[in-house]
Simulated assay, not measured.
Amino acid sequence: MTAQSKPVATTSPVRGVAPFFAPLQREFDRVLADFSGFDLSDVLGPSPRMDMREVDGGVELTVELPGMTEDDVHIDLEDDVLTVSGEKKSSTETRDKGFRMVERRYGSFSRSVRLPAPVKADGIKAALKQGVLTVTAPLDADASSRKISIPIKSA
């Protein structure tokens, strides 16, 4: 006499997960949902958002640096790596019905990006306007490796 086996479900209602993993998957989904709106910069420190795009004959890099001045930011180029660094100081103050709350975020930051091609170091320009740093660098196939600092001008 042979024992008849019942069909075993290979998936569960939780996105095709094996039945014994379903509770774990549900818990994982719940934890991720709890983190919606969570700002990793609160844990990891401030890190400015950066975009890079190719423009006619060069590269343009934009970096969000709200509340910062030219004196707070440094830009360096070493070989084909452009680095934007500085120190960010931010505070928020709330006053309501006799209490005062101040939230401050301080910290240094550094973002580096490898440029897609060599650039003319002496042609790099940087401007900071309304919290957005724009760095433009003309391409140069004959550029040699070196390290320079790029001055920032008010726009």
Rank of each mutant, 00 (worst) to 15 (best):
residue 144 S to G: 06
residue 97 K to T: 01
residue 108 S to N: 06
residue 151 P to R: 01
residue 149 S to Q: 15
residue 39 D to V: 12
residue 124 I to M: 07
residue 29 D to R: 05
residue 79 D to G: 01
residue 5 S to K: 06
residue 55 V to Q: 02
residue 9 A to I: 03
residue 117 A to D: 11
residue 143 A to M: 12
residue 110 S to G: 13
residue 7 P to M: 05
residue 28 F to I: 10
residue 112 S to G: 15
residue 144 S to V: 11
residue 46 P to M: 14
residue 58 G to C: 05
residue 146 R to S: 15
residue 130 Q to K: 08
residue 92 T to A: 15
residue 138 P to F: 06
residue 8 V to Q: 04
residue 41 S to F: 06
residue 103 E to H: 07
residue 106 Y to L: 06
residue 42 D to F: 12
residue 59 V to Y: 08
residue 122 D to N: 03
residue 97 K to C: 02
residue 19 P to S: 01
residue 83 T to K: 13
residue 74 H to P: 00
residue 80 D to I: 14
residue 121 A to P: 00
residue 75 I to E: 06
residue 119 V to A: 08
residue 33 A to D: 13
residue 13 P to M: 01
residue 101 M to C: 05
residue 137 A to P: 10
residue 98 G to I: 00
residue 21 F to C: 07
residue 13 P to H: 00
residue 71 D to K: 11
residue 24 L to G: 02
residue 95 R to S: 08
residue 9 A to G: 04
residue 152 I to C: 04
residue 74 H to F: 02
residue 5 S to G: 04
residue 13 P to E: 07
residue 152 I to W: 05
residue 144 S to E: 12
residue 31 V to W: 11
residue 8 V to T: 11
residue 151 P to H: 04
residue 116 P to G: 03
residue 11 T to W: 00
residue 79 D to H: 05
residue 15 R to E: 15
residue 149 S to Y: 07
residue 23 P to D: 15
residue 15 R to G: 09
residue 24 L to Y: 09
residue 28 F to L: 12
residue 28 F to T: 06
residue 110 S to K: 14
residue 123 G to M: 02
residue 50 M to H: 08
residue 109 F to T: 05
residue 65 L to R: 05
residue 70 E to W: 00
residue 73 V to H: 06
residue 66 P to C: 03
residue 37 G to E: 03
residue 152 I to S: 05
residue 115 L to Y: 05
residue 96 D to C: 04
residue 121 A to Q: 03
residue 55 V to I: 15
residue 113 V to E: 15
residue 148 I to Y: 04
residue 92 T to R: 13
residue 61 L to D: 01
residue 101 M to V: 14
residue 68 M to K: 03
residue 24 L to I: 07
residue 93 E to C: 03
residue 21 F to H: 09
residue 20 F to T: 11
residue 85 S to Q: 13
residue 106 Y to G: 14
residue 19 P to L: 04
residue 41 S to I: 06
residue 59 V to E: 09
residue 103 E to T: 02
residue 46 P to H: 15
residue 56 D to H: 10
residue 98 G to H: 11
residue 117 A to S: 13
residue 146 R to N: 11
residue 51 D to V: 02
residue 151 P to C: 07
residue 114 R to G: 10
residue 19 P to Y: 02
residue 20 F to Q: 11
residue 104 R to P: 00
